[in-house]
Design a protein around this nucleic acid. Structure first.
Lengths: 325, 325
DNA sequence: CAGTCGGATGACACCGGTTGCATAGTCGGC
DNA sequence: GCCGACTATGCAACCGGTGTCATCCGACTG
C-alpha cells in the first residue's frame, strides 16, 4: 500500500510537504499542492487514519455504547449522537453490549482508546469499571449518575408523577407495577419515583416483580395483572406494556375501558399500536446531543464533573381512560 | 500516559519483552512476565490499540454500515454480525448512513482503514464508490451484488412468489403494490420479482408508486389503495404495511376480511401488531453471519469474488385471508 | 544595495507499539 | 570438558503519519 513517502518521491517533494498538503493545504504553495494531489491520485493514495491518530494523539472518532441496538428506546439517542458528531466532523462508532455486563466492559475497553470520547447509555457496569474506562478516554454517561464522571441524567420522577396524577384524575385507585430488570440502574429509580408519587396522591401500588424489558415478559405479566384487583397498569417500558395490552385484548379484556395501561420510554411503537400507548417520554435523543456537546466542547473544569438533567413527561394516548366503576 | 518503555524501565526489562508479555505471554519467561504485569498494574498501563494497529497492519475491528440503525429490519443483521465478530475476538463498530448516499460514502471511507473488514448492508452507493471502499479494505455486501466484490444475496423472488401463490389461493385477483424508494437497489429487484410471479399466476398488479420505507408513507398509501378496486396489498416493507393496516382500520375497512395486507422483511413488529402481519421473511441475520465468515475466513481466491445466496420465504399471519366475493 | 522579514520547504525526532535477527545463557549429550 | 541446540532477551528497524526547527529564497525597506 502506498504511503506518504511514495507520494513524495513521485511528486518530487519531501514527505512533510505531502503531509501538510493533506492536513493543512493552505500552508502549501499552489504548485506543490497541485503536484502532490496529482501524484496521490495516480497512486490512489489516501492518508492512513491509524497512523494519523497515533501521531496526533486523537482519532477523530466518537463512540456510543448502548445495552441493545435493537431496543427502539436507544435509536433516537444514537441518531442524535450521530448528528451532533457529524456536525463536528467526527465519525461515530456504535457498539452494543447485548444487555450483558461482561460484554459491556469488553466493548468499552476495546473502544476506549480508539475514540476521542465515549457516551455510555444506561450503563449497567459497576462503578469501578466505568471509572476504569473513564481513565482511558473522556466518558459521559446517560441515564446514570456517578461521582466524578460527567453525566446527562433523565430522572423519571416528573413523568411518572404526571402518570400518577393522570390515573388518579381518571378515578383509578389501585395500580399494578411491572418493574424492570434487577440489574438495571434505572429500575430502583423508577420504582422509587412511582412509590413517592403514589404515596403523595393516595394511589395504591401492587408490585408484580421484575420483568425483562421485552415483549414476551409483558405477555406473561398480563395474566398476573388480571389476578389482582387493579384497574390500571404501569409497565417499566413500552415493550412490556405492549405485551400486556395485546394479551389483555386476547383474553377479552378491553383496554382502556376495563384496564388502563401506561408504558415508559415513549418509543415510536407506542404511537403505532392500537390502542396507541400512553407513555412517559424520556428525552433520550436530546440527552445524546447534550452528551456529545459535553464531550466535544468540555466546560472549563471547575473541579467537579459536568452534569445535566433532562425532565421526563407523560404523553397521553388511547390506552388510558376512566376507571370502570 | 504510560507506554511500553515506562513499563519496561519499571520492570527492569526491555520494551520488546513488555510487548511480548502482552502479545504472546507464552514466549516470555515466568519471572519476567510476572514483573512486567506487576509494573503494568502499578502504572495502570494498557497497550495502545492504535499503535498496535499501525505496527501490525491490522486493527482487530470489523465494521458494519447500515442505511438506518432505527430500521428494525437491520437489527438481526447487526446482532448476528456482532455475535460472529465476537466469536472471532474482533470488536464490531456499527455506523448508520441515515439513508443518505453522501453520508454513506463518508462513513464508509472513515471506517475503511480503521477496520479489517466491512459489511455493507443494502448499500445505495454507486458501483464505483463501493469499489473505492473495497480497494481500501475487504468488503462484503449484503443484499447487493456487484462484480468482483464478495456478496451475500437475499433474492426476494422465492418469498414474493410464495406471497403471490398465497393470495391467488385465497381468491385474490387484483393486487396493489406499494414500491420502495427509487434510490434503493432492492426496489427494482422486488418489483421485478412481483411482476414475474404475478404474470405467471395470472394476478393483476396495480403499481401505486414509490414510498419511503417508513410508517407514515404507509398511512398515506392506504387511501390510494382504497381508491383502487383491489382486494390485496403488497407493501415494500413491514413499516409501510403497518401504516396501511392502521389507516384502513381507522377508515373502517377490516383487515383481512375486506382487504389483505402483506409486508416484506418480517421484522419483529410484524408479529406484535394486531392483526399480526403476513410478511416475506428475509434472512438478514444469517446473511450477516455469513458475511462475517466470508470476511474473517476468506475462501482461497479462485479468481472471482465469493458469493452466497439466501432464500426468502413467506410467513403467513393474520393480515391475509380469503378475498371478499 | 545591504538588511530584515516572512513564507515555503526539508530534515529529523517523535507517537507506541511489533518483529527479525543477533546474542547471551542454559542444558544435555558424548 | 566441550560442543551443539534451544530458549529468553535485547537491539534496532520499521509501521505511516505529525510537528518542530532550521534553512533557503524572494521581496520589501531604508
Amino acid at each position: 500500500m502506498t504511503n506518504i513517502r511514495t507520494v513524495a518521491a513521485r511528486a518530487g517533494v519531501s514527505p512533510s510537504t505531502v503531509s501538510r498538503a493533506f492536513a493543512r493545504p493552505e500552508v502549501v504553495a499552489e504548485e506543490a499542492r497541485r503536484r502532490v494531489f496529482a501524484a496521490a491520485a495516480e497512486l490512489g493514495y489516501q492518508p492512513n487514519p491509524v497512523a494519523r491518530s497515533l501521531a496526533m494523539g486523537r482519532t477523530g472518532n466518537l463512540g456510543v455504547i448502548v445495552p441493545d441496538i435493537a431496543n427502539p428506546f436507544f435509536t433516537p439517542l444514537i441518531k442524535e449522537v450521530q448528528r451532533e458528531a457529524r456536525r463536528r466532523e467526527r465519525s461515530l462508532f456504535v457498539a452494543d453490549s447485548d444487555e450483558h455486563v461482561r460484554q459491556e466492559l469488553e466493548v468499552a475497553l476495546a473502544m476506549a482508546r480508539q475514540v476521542d470520547g465515549l457516551v455510555l447509555a444506561s450503563s449497567r457496569l459497576p462503578e469501578e469499571d466505568i471509572r476504569a474506562v473513564a481513565a482511558l478516554t473522556p466518558v459521559v454517561t446517560v441515564s446514570r449518575v456517578l461521582d466524578g464522571v460527567p453525566a446527562v441524567a433523565t430522572p423519571s420522577d416528573r413523568g411518572i408523577g404526571q402518570a400518577v396524577e393522570h390515573l388518579l384524575a381518571l378515578g383509578h385507585r389501585r395500580l399494578a407495577y411491572l418493574g424492570g430488570p434487577e440489574e438495571s440502574y434505572v429500575t430502583p429509580e423508577r420504582h422509587g419515583a412511582l412509590h413517592d408519587a403514589a404515596a403523595r396522591g393516595g394511589l395504591e401500588v401492587v408490585d408484580l416483580g421484575h420483568f425483562q424489558p421485552r415483549y414476551e415478559p409483558g405477555v406473561r405479566a398480563a395474566d398476573l395483572v388480571l389476578a389482582e384487583d387493579v384497574t390500571a397498569v404501569l409497565a417499566y417500558n413500552d415493550q412490556i406494556a405492549l405485551g400486556v395490552v395485546n394479551r389483555l385484548t386476547e383474553r377479552g379484556v378491553r383496554v382502556p375501558e376495563e384496564i388502563s395501561v401506561v408504558g415508559v420510554d415513549d418509543t415510536w411503537i407506542a404511537g403505532l399500536t392500537r390502542p396507541a400507548l400512553t407513555s412517559v417520554r424520556v428525552p433520550v435523543g436530546r440527552a445524546g446531543a447534550v452528551a456529545v456537546r459535553m464531550l466535544a466542547d468540555p466546560a472549563p473544569g471547575d473541579g467537579h464533573a459536568a452534569r445535566e438533567s433532562l425532565a421526563t413527561e407523560l404523553i397521553v394516548r388511547a390506552s388510558t381512560g376512566p376507571a370502570p366503576r
